Amino acid sequence: MQNKKINTIIFDLGAVLIDWNPRHLYRKIFSSEEEMENFLRDVCTSDWNETQDEGRTLAEGTELLVNSFPHHEENIRAYYGRWDEMLGGEIEGTKNILHRLKESGQYKLYALTNWSDETFPIAWAMYPSLHWFDGIVVSGKEKMRKPAHAFFQLLLDRYNADAHTSLFIDDNLRNVLAAREFGIDTILFESPEQLKTALENRSIII
């Protein structure tokens, strides 16, 4: 806990508020879980996807993999060609928490997300809850991403927020540890129920 009262809450989006998961798509493509997991581990990896999140174009990232794994060309092109099928909707429990925080009027609400600037507008058009934030910082637009301290600093500077009165919520331990090192209070997201309890323990919601 911080000594100062929390007045700013910063959310991650994917797997916290928005159910984004490439498995939603690739379960339609592969005949077995093992085959799918091997593909996501060895071909369309999380590190590869995060490079697009950091600003590399989808076309460049796709062609790089097609050249390296030509026998997987169709499946690689599906990653962004059918990207909207990776979206499973808003995570209702988190959406309800965000709505309560918004309605309270007590907190500035921001999102700090590792997300391609080319795909984020699709989610923005689909999900009303994204419009409840006072500001969203998208890694693909800024050409930097979590866990870089500079990315946290960018949000704080842009919205005149103080690290010591901010709370950051993310499902990725790497990002949570980086925020903690930066002096921001953190919650490692596991489920909406666990998040609600953590916020209640901080007397942020009652």
Rank of each mutant, 00 (worst) to 15 (best):
W115S: 02
H164M: 06
D134Y: 07
K102D: 07
N7V: 08
K108H: 05
I169A: 08
A178H: 04
L17I: 15
I76H: 08
R77K: 13
T186W: 00
L58Y: 02
E193K: 14
H131F: 05
D185T: 07
E90F: 02
S68C: 08
Y107E: 14
N67R: 12
P70F: 11
S116N: 08
E181V: 02
I205K: 14
I97W: 03
I9L: 09
D19H: 10
M126T: 08
P192L: 09
T94L: 01
K143A: 01
Q106M: 11
N172Q: 09
N201A: 08
T113A: 11
T186Y: 01
L40V: 11
E103V: 07
I91E: 07
L154Y: 06
R41P: 02
D162P: 05
T62N: 02
Q2L: 13
Y127D: 07
V66R: 01
E63Y: 05
L13K: 00
R180V: 01
D12N: 06
A178M: 02
M126R: 11
Y80R: 01
W83N: 04
T165R: 12
L64G: 00
K28H: 13
A125P: 03
N201M: 10
I91L: 10
S116D: 07
S31E: 14
L98F: 04
T186K: 05
E74H: 12
M1T: 15
D134K: 07
I136S: 06
K28L: 14
A179E: 07
T113S: 15
G61V: 12
Y107S: 13
P147V: 09
V43A: 13
F152P: 01
W124E: 13
W83G: 00
Y79W: 14
A148Y: 07
Y107D: 12
E73C: 05
G88Y: 11
K146T: 04
A148S: 12
T8F: 01
R77L: 10
A111W: 01
G88P: 04
R56H: 06
M86A: 10
F189V: 12
F120V: 04
L25D: 09
E92R: 11
E103S: 14
W20I: 13
S129A: 13
Y127E: 11
R202D: 08
V137G: 04
D162I: 04
I136P: 01
I10N: 02
N21W: 03
R202M: 12
L98P: 03
R100E: 13
E54N: 06
I206S: 15
M144A: 09
P70V: 14
T51D: 06
V138N: 03
A198D: 15
T45Y: 11
D185R: 07
S68R: 10
D171K: 02
T57E: 03
G61L: 13
M1D: 15
L112D: 01
E193A: 14
A163H: 00
L112E: 00
K5I: 08
E190D: 13
D12F: 03
V137C: 00
F168V: 05
F152I: 03
T119Y: 10
W20M: 09
L25A: 10
E118R: 09
H71L: 08
N67L: 14
Y159M: 04
N201Q: 15
E85H: 06
N201D: 15
F189Q: 04
F189C: 10
T165E: 15
L156W: 05
F168W: 03
W124T: 02
S32P: 05
L64R: 05
D42T: 15
I204A: 11
E74K: 12
E33Y: 09
L65R: 03
I6W: 02
